[in-house]
Design a protein around this nucleic acid. Sequence first.
DNA 1: TGTCAATATATTTTCGAAAATCGGCAGAAT
DNA 2: ATTCTGCCGATTTTCGAAAATATATTGACA
Lengths: 242, 242
Amino acid sequence: MTFVQQHDGAIEPTVNAQVFRQLRIDIVTCGLMPNERLRVESLRERYGVGGSPIREALMRLEAEGLVILEQNKGFRVSPASREHLLDLMKTRVEIEGLALRWSIEKGGVDWEANLLAAYHRLSHQKKTVRGSGNEVNLVWFKEHRNFHSALTAACGSQHLMGIRENLFAQAERYVALSIISKCPPRNDDSEHEQMMRAALTRNAGRAVQLMTDHIGRTNERVVKTLGAAAQPIKLRRMNGKP
Amino acid sequence: MTFVQQHDGAIEPTVNAQVFRQLRIDIVTCGLMPNERLRVESLRERYGVGGSPIREALMRLEAEGLVILEQNKGFRVSPASREHLLDLMKTRVEIEGLALRWSIEKGGVDWEANLLAAYHRLSHQKKTVRGSGNEVNLVWFKEHRNFHSALTAACGSQHLMGIRENLFAQAERYVALSIISKCPPRNDDSEHEQMMRAALTRNAGRAVQLMTDHIGRTNERVVKTLGAAAQPIKLRRMNGKP
DNA sequence: TGTCAATATATTTTCGAAAATCGGCAGAAT
DNA sequence: ATTCTGCCGATTTTCGAAAATATATTGACA
């Protein structure tokens, strides 16, 4: 595995951590598609490392819900489906709402400053890069994740933050899927700005409502593009007969 | 690893799954104490298996928050602290409350039946077994977990259920800690019955309030016994000098 | 005596190969 | 034709040993 430097300059010290990070990115951005089988041998080639760190990384991702393990039958990327997405969204609305409410209650000046900074960075990024097809813009993803994290950063609960981040990652995967499906990305920049304003003015009710709408609108858009790209068709060997 | 048959008669097919299950139990019941180092070599002896399945199981538990990994320095059981417990409780009140509300909304006859059955089984168990010291009663733990699971089983969200179960497991560990610390276990049987009644009569508000109190009271009890047993004192080799 | 560098030991991490398991295929039996 | 049985290749799972890393110990030097 080539040691890829991260944005913050840090390098993951162990191969396991590197594989975990990269695998997570590849799954969330749908470089590895939903339901795709994850053979250890293929991944060994892909990342140029041994089997152990790969399996260990996969186990972590399994616990996070991004990967599925069928015992003695191997790993695959978690399937994407309308039902799964709906469930995810329902839960996310509650969790993000709760975290936001708490954050607005408890946030201090530092929280406000970081939120402003995060929004500023996000507003200078586009969702897709025009260059090679409509590919997902990793930097936008990062800044978007950062912004939502900043919104809820002052909620005062490690547990709630962890849950929120996990659900967020799963939702990101659906957004990536939608972008890949050539769905022209909607502009939600103003929504982010409104949320930020409501948060900074300590209008919790409005902020939560905006967040709910924000998630709902994203969801609507994604649901439309789901039927096509969600489930790779299962292929059966045809014995060469037509 | 000896193939231990489970309560439902199923046997985990892979060594990894067995180690995972057993390790999880040992941590939740404080057979492995908070903050205790988890050396691969020791665990290899303890469970009589190779290193790979152990590391893989530990990675899963790390993602669940029951185990901590410091890169290149190994695993340890997650430390237990008053702050951690308080955070956990705050979050759990919200999650359990939400799941319970949804469950009461959507639950059908099957849900009611299972809930009744689960309560009946729980009410026939004691928290501790008198035999060898005040040890945790694994069966009570199982039935207690089952009961709370049954309460929220109809919430209609896999994600919310998963989150709830995870938080519940972490809370169980604190209860076990409290029991081990010779804290005479409180009788919360009637609380369970009241919750069940409120749920069955579709009184969501009351049920959630009871749940909140239930969690709060357990928490109070546990907090008291924390100072003593929470953090094993870090020992430094003394060079043989007194 | 105390501090620092160098060495030795313990532990984690990783690899490569052996063992176990699954799914498919061929051939026998009904 | 259909079901069953046993074999074969592909894949997962597990082990044991090698490489990498952290921790402890020793000894030199101020």
